[in-house]
């Protein structure tokens, strides 16, 4: 019995031999560049010193983790990171869906295409450029935003030093950059909806709003759920490269996130083990979030990532 099953398995494996051959370089890639670095996470439990190397650096157990948990910045870092992601999830994610719905209703094809071209455009601008434009536009003395405020009789504002303004600025910046690009995947999902469903809805006398509600949204729900789950896996990341460009002492209260902290302590301060421990904490939380989200989604809706 067992032999037979084994033989069948072998035959199946053999029939897929070219597929394995294809997958081989991908597998090598994942092992070398994704899994091998995970082995390097042991330095979070060691006092890593490059001259002693991995194996000879002394073990310190959870020293660096407990140092982080005792830090007065722990709560602030976690809060800022989560809130920046929450803002993104609550505002920018639905905004892309709304844009897709609006674009989908456009009947003039040339207008539709032009609108798409223009909304995709910011995605192609690099983050250094975008951040420097933000600084430029918000400058109290020479920025266009403050010129506008002043001409309307308002008081010029130094937005980048106001902790309360940072999250809205950052969220708006990302909205500008990503809304068009992110709408692509929803447009694709909408175009995959069976046309007969729309007709059926119309014959029932449904208006466009009802159509949107009863056909379009359910039609893209699967895509939305999968994307939300993936997004939740990154709730502890925030694009620190861009944040660094907008950060200053006065807005640190809201702009300091785990990513920028790790960068400051690890790369600039040379505390590799400490930074790796904090980074690992970040990864573990993110991973736990995905598992949880996937579990809940599988339980309460039909879709899940795996």
């Amino acid at each position: 019995m067992a032999g037979k099953r084994g033989a069948r398995l072998l035959r199946r494996v053999w029939s897929g031999r070219y597929l394995y051959l294809m997958f081989l370089p991908v597998f090598v890639y994942y092992m070398l560049f994704r899994y091998a670095p995970m082995v390097g996470l042991v330095i979070a439990f060691k006092d890593f010193n490059a001259f002693l190397g991995f194996s000879r650096s002394p073990w310190v157990g959870f020293k660096f983790f407990s140092q982080f948990f005792r830090s007065i910045y722990l709560w602030r870092l976690v809060r800022n990171t989560l809130l920046i992601n929450l803002y993104d999830l609550v505002f920018n994610f639905p905004a892309a869906i709304v844009l897709a719905l609006l674009l989908n209703e456009v009947q003039n094809r040339r207008f539709k295409k032009t609108a798409q071209t223009i909304t995709y455009l910011p995605y192609f601008v690099s983050s250094v450029v975008i951040a420097s434009m933000v600084v430029q536009f918000l400058s109290p003395s020479s920025g266009i935003v403050n010129h506008l405020i002043a001409s309307l009789g308002g008081e010029r504002q130094y937005f980048l030093t106001q902790p309360g303004a940072f999250r809205p600025i950052f969220t708006l910046m990302n909205l500008w950059k990503n809304i068009g690009w992110n709408s692509i995947i929803f447009l694709a999902a909408i175009s995959g909806i069976n046309g007969e469903l729309y007709e059926a809805c119309m014959i029932d006398g449904g208006g466009y709003l009802r159509r949107m509600w009863h056909v379009t949204l359910p039609g893209i729900a699967g895509t939305v759920v999968v994307l939300v789950i993936m997004r939740l896996g990154h709730v502890m990341d925030a694009g620190y490269e861009t944040i660094l460009l907008l950060q200053n002492n006065a807005n640190l209260e809201t702009s300091d996130v785990i990513g920028t902290y790790v960068y400051r302590r690890g790369l600039r301060g040379g505390e590799y083990s400490y930074a790796t421990a904090v980074g690992m904490f970040q990864s573990v939380i993110g991973f736990a979030m995905v598992i949880l989200a996937n579990f809940l989604s599988r339980r309460y809706s039909e879709t899940s990532l795996w």
Binding site: N249, A250, R265
Partner: peptide, 14 residues
């Protein structure tokens, strides 16, 4: 000190 430094930098400007 790294934590103190961050805090001080922030507060002096404030």
């Amino acid at each position: 000190y790294t934590e103190i430094e961050t805090y001080v930098n922030e507060m002096i400007d404030k």
